[in-house]
Amino acid sequence: MSQAKEPGYKDLPLGALILDAGNSEKYETGGWRTFMPVHDPKKCTNCLLCWILCPDGAIIVKNEKFAGFNMKHCKGCGICAEECPPKIKAITMVKEKK
């Protein structure tokens, strides 16, 4: 880890406060994954339940249609695969090779 580049204790806000709102985007949680979601566009009906329920906002939507996963933030929790309607099942979780 390159600790030298990180700010020193005098540069940090007091009380470990986070002063900038909406900065969770900068914190990449993609490294936490064991399983990754795989999307099948042939099965997907674009109901976007996955987009509604993803706890990390990692479902990318363009023109009201599923457009992929943000793998920098997807933690691999599998909620999208679980919540994809039973008759559709367009998302499956597969073990990620690293």
Binding site: M1, Q3, E6, P7, G8, Y9, L12, G15, A16, L17, I18, L19, A21
Partner: peptide, 17 residues
């Protein structure tokens, strides 16, 4: 000016905080 109090903080920043 929304701020966050009491975030999680690991080996990388806890000491400096």
């Amino acid at each position: 000016h929304p701020v966050t109090y009491g975030p999680i903080d690991f080996h990388d920043y806890y000491f400096e905080h």
